[in-house]
Simulated scan of single mutants.
Amino acid sequence: MSAPVIVPVALGARAYDIRIGSGLLQQLGRDVAAAGARTAAVVTDENVARLHLDTVRASLDDAHLINSAAVIPSGEGSKSFKHLEEVCSRLLDAKIERGDVVIAFGGGVVGDLAGFAASILRRGVRVIQVPTSLLAQVDSSVGGKTGINTKAGKNLIGAFHQPSLVLADTDVLDTLPDREFRAGYAEVVKYGLIDDAGFFGWLEKHWGNVFQGGADRTKAIATSCASKASIVGRDEFETGDRALLNLGHTFGHALEAAVGYDGARLVHGEGVAIGMALAFQFSVRLGLAAPEDAQRVVDHLKAAGLPTRIQDIPGEVGDADRLLDLMAQDKKVKAGRLTFILARGIGRSFVAPDVPPQNAREFLKAALDGSITG
């Protein structure tokens, strides 16, 4: 077993490491004990519990830690007030104290829900993120964003609560359904499109190896984490540059809300893939980016088996006005004005505040009627 790749997240007193490699689940108990905890509570979902919970609890037992598990239903629907209350109750039943640890063991839903529960339990207890999906390993487990969804939109109730440690065991990705892996890959592509054209070019050549596993997969995860860590280190609370991490998300979150967070129709990474294609096409329409750059984005996402058009979503999503209304709930909205993440080219994304709603409406109408090609 090779040594894990370590990516530091430099946040002063809240600094922590991201460890990326094989066999990290078996070492989890040792890491929790090293953090000085006596008790650990694992929050996970039904799918992950069936595959990997025994391994995690055996590791905690081997380290002589008191431990328990709260298992929630799989899927985006668990990011709700109902399940937040249930998880908090289970953590209190487990007598988790401030010196103990909550282990968020799952994909983005579990990480967001368990992290939020840890942030409010006894006004804040430690959380270790152990992400089990590609999306969570490269994105949602890093940076301290936690939260739940409401009818008004995605992640509108939450808090910043940095983990004490992130353990990304690449072995668990071998049990990930193909659709979920592809969806997570959209977030990997995002880091190339934000500010690393060289990484995007590398992905165009090596994405097949990333899907197969091995050294290229580890490199893609580590590069993505290092990119996010750099941005989070500059802007922990999303007052500036960190908004760049939402490339594709303004469109994507609206599309997720439009389908009622129905994972059978659209999962988060697929919404991000469509959103990134739309962001580049919108940038072309506004005269900011070259059409060939937008086409490269679309072509690569398609090659990786990801959707790139609103029409790729089964069923109806509504009209342009409905999507604009859903975008108006976006956390980047200020004084009612829409903010988009647009691009001047691959690796040249930027925050575009105060985009005229009429421009966005006309673009969405064109995207919905199929006149945006690619």
Rank of each mutant, 00 (worst) to 15 (best):
residue 108 G to W: 08
residue 123 R to L: 11
residue 265 R to P: 07
residue 113 L to F: 10
residue 163 P to F: 13
residue 305 G to Q: 10
residue 337 R to H: 15
residue 191 Y to F: 13
residue 58 A to K: 13
residue 117 A to Q: 11
residue 317 V to Q: 11
residue 340 F to T: 04
residue 248 G to C: 07
residue 319 D to R: 01
residue 362 E to N: 14
residue 208 G to A: 11
residue 363 F to W: 10
residue 42 V to H: 02
residue 357 P to S: 13
residue 247 L to H: 03
residue 230 S to W: 10
residue 202 W to Q: 02
residue 234 R to F: 02
residue 338 L to Q: 15
residue 46 E to H: 01
residue 257 A to F: 07
residue 147 G to C: 14
residue 341 I to E: 02
residue 350 F to G: 12
residue 60 L to N: 08
residue 334 K to V: 14
residue 61 D to V: 02
residue 94 A to G: 01
residue 350 F to W: 09
residue 100 D to E: 09
residue 95 K to V: 04
residue 275 G to S: 08
residue 98 R to D: 07
residue 180 E to V: 09
residue 258 A to G: 09
residue 76 E to Y: 06
residue 163 P to M: 08
residue 269 G to D: 02
residue 81 F to D: 02
residue 319 D to Y: 00
residue 84 L to C: 11
residue 139 D to Q: 10
residue 272 V to C: 00
residue 302 K to P: 00
residue 17 D to V: 00
residue 280 F to V: 07
residue 48 V to L: 02
residue 80 S to P: 06
residue 322 R to G: 04
residue 202 W to D: 05
residue 163 P to V: 14
residue 346 I to L: 08
residue 178 D to W: 04
residue 289 A to T: 14
residue 270 E to A: 05
residue 347 G to F: 07
residue 216 D to A: 13
residue 83 H to V: 01
residue 185 Y to A: 10
residue 28 L to I: 04
residue 256 E to W: 14
residue 268 H to R: 04
residue 251 F to V: 06
residue 23 G to Q: 12
residue 77 G to L: 00
residue 232 V to R: 08
residue 89 S to E: 09
residue 157 I to K: 06
residue 270 E to V: 05
residue 36 G to Y: 08
residue 372 I to L: 07
residue 126 R to D: 14
residue 303 A to R: 15
residue 358 Q to Y: 04
residue 103 I to Y: 06
residue 109 V to R: 05
residue 369 D to R: 05
residue 326 L to T: 10
residue 254 A to R: 13
residue 311 Q to A: 15
residue 156 L to E: 05
residue 264 A to G: 12
residue 320 A to Q: 05
residue 269 G to H: 00
residue 291 P to M: 10
residue 188 V to E: 05
residue 190 K to F: 03
residue 203 L to F: 09
residue 39 T to R: 15
residue 303 A to Y: 12
residue 81 F to G: 00
residue 271 G to W: 11
residue 344 R to Y: 14
residue 59 S to P: 04
residue 215 A to Q: 12
residue 134 L to G: 07
residue 205 K to D: 15
residue 22 S to M: 06
residue 277 A to F: 12
residue 72 I to P: 01
residue 235 D to H: 13
residue 65 L to Q: 10
residue 58 A to D: 15
residue 108 G to R: 07
residue 69 A to C: 01
residue 302 K to Q: 15
residue 213 G to N: 10
residue 18 I to T: 07
residue 350 F to K: 10
residue 13 A to C: 00
residue 250 T to V: 15
residue 327 M to R: 13
residue 224 S to Q: 03
residue 227 S to L: 03
residue 272 V to G: 04
residue 91 L to K: 08
residue 230 S to N: 15
residue 272 V to L: 03
residue 157 I to P: 03
residue 360 A to K: 06
residue 128 I to V: 15
residue 276 M to P: 07
residue 61 D to R: 13
residue 162 Q to S: 06
residue 119 S to P: 09
residue 71 V to W: 03
residue 366 A to K: 12
residue 225 C to A: 15
residue 251 F to Q: 11
residue 248 G to P: 07
residue 265 R to W: 05
residue 277 A to Y: 10
residue 5 V to C: 04
residue 132 T to K: 05
residue 245 L to S: 09
residue 348 R to I: 03
residue 315 G to Q: 08
residue 263 G to I: 02
residue 263 G to W: 00
residue 149 N to A: 05
residue 89 S to A: 10
residue 348 R to D: 14
residue 159 A to P: 13
residue 254 A to Y: 12
residue 70 A to T: 13
residue 91 L to T: 01
residue 242 R to E: 08
residue 263 G to E: 14
residue 183 A to D: 00
residue 173 L to I: 12
